[in-house]
């Protein structure tokens, strides 16, 4: 790992200011993605600006028809939150199965979204629930936020402050864990909510994506067997020794059916 300067700003404005002044700086959440990447020499930021503890990024509350989760909340906090369990139990369950206990106690919602690992769990929830990503300067709809492999709509000096999840009528996440890494080989989040039926797939492709055919089928009838006729194409999906594109395509179907069944 290359040497870097570490900053612990007192508030959000100071954090944004530091990022603006230092073009090679990166915001640091819980360090569960960025630090391993730095250890492997794949990133070498000049400065790290710690944002996880900022008051502006903390808190979980229900605001009208939305659940608002602070970007600095850890996966463990989301998983254990009574508000989350009540409003969107599928989101609490998803957070409770990210990584391992150490990762869940350090990693944050904002960090995960900003990193946008193609096999991360949170992007599936954000996209399927039609959430809004709130930053220090604007609001970004989920459909506009994810831009493929490790790419998001965030500016280099922009910090995610919270995520507003519309509370769905039904939702569930089903994950098939990669045998080695335990990241999602395929993860499917299904939701029926204010924005209609949405199906988001993580792990299978170069970034999280919506499965339009499944959304149509489930829009017609919300039942696992409504997906029976939906063929998922292998084209464009990831492949590694533990999962060919064809197998991943098959698993998208299996996980989607399981998610719908679990959502009830």
């Amino acid at each position: 790992m290359q040497d870097f300067s570490f900053h612990k700003p007192q508030n959000l404005a100071a954090a944004v200011d530091t990022l603006k002044k230092r073009p090679e700086a990166k915001a640091l959440g819980g360090g569960q993605s960025l630090i391993p990447v730095m250890k492997l020499g794949l990133a070498a930021p000049s400065d790290l600006v710690s944002v996880a503890g900022l008051a502006e990024l903390r808190g979980i509350k229900v605001d009208g028809k939305e659940l608002v989760v602070g970007a600095g909340m850890t996966h463990a906090e989301v998983a254990d939150s009574a508000e989350v369990k009540k409003a969107i139990p599928a989101l609490a369950a998803l957070a409770g199965h990210i990584g391992d206990a150490q990762v869940r106690n350090r990693g944050t919602l904002g960090g995960s979204l900003a990193h946008d690992d193609p096999a991360a769990d949170y992007p599936a929830a954000v996209l399927a629930l039609g959430a809004t990503v709130v930053t220090d300067r604007r609001k970004i709809a989920a459909d506009d936020f994810f831009r493929g492999l490790y790419q998001t709509a965030l500016g280099a000096d922009e910090i995610v402050t919270s995520v507003r999840f519309p509370i769905p009528e039904k939702a569930a996440y089903a994950k098939f864990a990669h045998p080695a890494s335990k990241f999602a080989l395929v993860g499917v989040m299904v939701a029926k909510g204010p924005a209609g039926v949405r199906v988001a797939v993580t792990g299978a492709g170069p970034g999280v994506f919506r499965q339009a055919d499944m959304e149509r089928a489930l829009g017609g009838r919300w039942a696992a067997d409504a997906l029976a006729g939906v063929a998922v194409k292998a084209e464009g999906l990831n492949a590694d020794p533990y999962g060919s594109a064809e197998y991943r395509a098959h698993l998208i179907g299996v996980m989607a059916r399981r998610a719908v069944a679990a959502a009830g």
Binding site: P179, A180, F183, D240, P241, Y242
Partner: peptide
């Protein structure tokens, strides 16, 4: 059930970490 070293045809070890080698 789990373990197996994997090389690509250039001789790169695909299973060169615990992300790709299942203990």
């Amino acid at each position: 059930l789990l373990e197996g070293a994997q090389y690509d045809d250039q001789g790169q070890l695909l299973s060169g970490s615990f992300l790709g080698y299942t203990m």
